[in-house]
């Protein structure tokens, strides 16, 4: 794979992670357990959409804007999305959503930290900004994981159930393919194995503080970076792409 194609694929993966994660968070809009949390989750979604847009814009520019950022976001089919399986999982209750957000934002924070050293100036710039946002996201979700874990018997049980359900999708975030090989050798992206080690440490510390047990990793599901998804992504896209599919070329 040449470098340009690898950067393009990588930008789509980063954008898709942000887009799908943001789309899931907006499902909470007007349904948050308290007003401040409603605002928080939609704020997180806004940051994620912004990061998605930056990566989509860059990807589109690499291909001479033949397809616009909007085309990339709304007119691809399921197998052409490269997001991690974790972010497409259903929200469940608030504990599942916060656990999902926690596991993902820990990854995002470490990823962006690494990308601030990228040899690609645009990726470096986007990541320097996004890192600040990811730090706020990570802090917010960690605080909730600790609060739920150390809260009542019920909140502890629910957040433990949440991690039991989600853990099998976490290894997928660190799966690498030919895109990563090319970008590691050119110093544009980071080795996800290194990030995995750091992620395990950071996540482990918070889970320990939250008195939560890390589930057995017996059953592991991967494939997101190669376009292989769980059944949930198709449903998200059906809703998310409705307008663009029903009214091609519609503008604001």
């Amino acid at each position: 794979m040449n470098t340009k194609d690898a950067v393009y694929n990588f930008c789509l993966r980063m954008a898709d992670n942000n887009l799908i994660s943001g789309q899931r968070l907006t499902e909470w809009c007007s349904r948050g357990p308290i007003l401040e949390e409603d605002l928080a989750m939609t704020n997180l979604a806004l940051d994620l959409f912004g990061q998605a847009e930056s990566f989509f814009d860059y990807a589109a520019s690499l291909n001479g804007n033949v397809k616009s950022a909007d085309d990339l976001a709304f007119l691809r089919s399921e197998r052409q999305y490269y997001n991690n399986l974790l972010v497409e999982q259903p929200n469940g209750d608030f504990a599942v959503t916060m656990m999902k957000q926690f596991l993902f934002s820990a990854f995002q924070k470490l990823m962006y930290e690494a990308l601030t050293e990228s040899n690609d100036d645009t990726i470096k710039g986007i990541s320097t900004k996004a890192l600040k946002e990811a730090k706020y996201h990570f802090r917010h979700s960690s605080e909730w994981v600790i609060r739920l874990g150390k809260g009542t018997k019920e909140s502890h049980e629910r957040v433990q159930l949440a991690i039991n359900e989600l853990w099998r999708f976490t290894t997928d975030m660190f799966e690498m393919n030919a895109t990563d090989e090319e970008l590691i050798s050119t110093g544009i992206s980071a080795n996800l194995e290194t990030i995995y080690g750091k992620w395990n440490f950071v996540v482990g510390e918070i889970l320990k503080e939250a008195t939560l047990a890390i589930p057995d990793a017996a059953k592991i599901i991967k494939g997101g970076c190669n376009g292989m998804h769980t059944e949930h992504l198709g449903h998200i896209l059906t809703e998310m792409q409705y307008l663009q599919r029903a009214y091609p070329g519609a503008t604001w």
């Binding site: 401040e36 949390e37 605002l39 928080a40 704020n43 997180l44 806004l46 912004g50 706020y136 917010h140």
Partner: peptide, 13 residues
């Protein structure tokens, strides 16, 4: 601090 997130991305409550 009431909330780390407010009416716009730049503000906390």
């Amino acid at each position: 601090l009431t909330s780390q997130f407010g009416s716009t991305p730049c503000k906390a409550l």
